[in-house]
Computed example of a mutant assay.
Amino acid sequence: MEYNRIIAVTGLPGLFELVSSKNDGAIVRSLDDRSTKFVSSRIHNFSHLESIEIYTVRDNVNLVEVFNAMEKSADKLPDGKDAAALKAFFKKIYPDMDFERVYASDMKKMIKWFEVLKKNEIEIKLTEPAEEVEEPAEVAEPVEEAAAPAKTKSAKASAAKAEAAPAETEEAKPVKAAKKKAAPKKEAATEEATEEKPKKTARKKKEE
C-alpha cells in the first residue's frame, strides 16, 4: 500500500485507501476495519495526505515533514484528548509550527493518522516526480531537411523559367533562319516589277 493512495474523507473517521475514482465519488477501503464502500463526492470531500500542508512561522511544509519528525522523536505520543499535551509535544518535535493557526483538533488528527499509518506499515514518503525523457537533438535534423524542398511560388516560377529557357533558345534559331530565307522573295518580286516597266514603254512607241 502506497502513501500517495491514502486519503482523508470529511465526515468519516480514520484514513482510507483510494481504490478507484468515479464521476460522482470514489470507492475507498478503510485502514481501520478494511471495509470497502462507495463514498459520494456530493456529500464528502477527499484529501490526499500527500497534498496536505501545515502552517509554520516560515513557509508551509508538507505533512510528511511533521510525520518524519514524529518518527525520529523518542517521546511517547500524547493523548489526543489533552490539548495542552498535544501542543507541548509538537512544540518539542517541530517548534516552527504556527500554533496560532494549527489548532488542537488538527494536532489530534495528525496523532491519529500517524498511528494508523504505522499500524498498517505504510512508508511515509512523497511520490518522486517522474523523470522527463529528453529526445536526442538528431531527431530534429530530418524535419529540417524535409522542410527544405518546400519553396515559395516565386521560387518555383523562376525554376520553371530556368528550365524552359534552353528549349526556347534552341527552337528560336531555326525560326529566325527561316525568316531570313523568306526575305529574298521580296527582292525577286521587285525585280519582276522593274522588268515589266520597259514593256509598257515599248507599247507606247509602237502606237506612235
Rank of each mutant, 00 (worst) to 15 (best):
G80Q: 12
K92C: 02
E135V: 15
K179E: 11
K91R: 15
E17I: 15
K108L: 04
V57Y: 07
A160V: 08
E132W: 10
S20P: 00
Y55F: 10
L31A: 01
L49Q: 01
S73E: 02
L86Q: 10
A177F: 07
K186L: 09
L77T: 07
I111K: 08
T36K: 14
K87M: 09
Y55M: 07
H44W: 06
E100N: 14
F67I: 00
F67L: 04
S158T: 11
D106C: 06
E53I: 06
T127R: 12
K72E: 03
T152K: 14
A202E: 12
D106V: 08
A137V: 15
K197G: 03
T36N: 01
A147L: 15
G11P: 04
F99V: 11
T190S: 08
I124F: 01
V9F: 05
K200I: 11
M110H: 03
K176Q: 08
L12S: 05
V19T: 02
S154H: 05
F67K: 03
A167Y: 07
R58G: 06
M97T: 14
E171T: 14
E134L: 15
E2M: 09
N60T: 14
T201V: 11
N45R: 14
V39D: 03
I122L: 00
I93Q: 03
A84I: 14
V102E: 12
S105N: 12
Y103F: 13
M70C: 01
V139S: 08
T201P: 03
A159L: 01
S47L: 03
F99N: 10
F114P: 00
D98E: 04
K92N: 09
A188K: 13
A157T: 13
Y3L: 00
A155P: 02
P13E: 09
V102A: 09
F46N: 03
T201N: 03
A69R: 15
S154N: 05
T169K: 14
K199V: 13
R203W: 08
D79A: 10
K76Q: 09
L12I: 07
I52D: 05
E134S: 15
G11F: 00
A177I: 15
K108T: 11
K109W: 07
A8N: 06
K109Q: 10
V143L: 13
W113Y: 07
N60K: 12
A189Y: 13
A88W: 04
S21E: 13
K112Y: 07
F38L: 01
V116M: 05
R29K: 14
D75Q: 14
S30T: 12
E207L: 08
V19F: 00
S41M: 04
A162S: 11
E138N: 14
D32C: 05
T10E: 00
T194E: 11
L12Y: 04
E138W: 15
E171D: 01
A172V: 13
P174A: 06
K176F: 00
L63Q: 06
A104D: 12
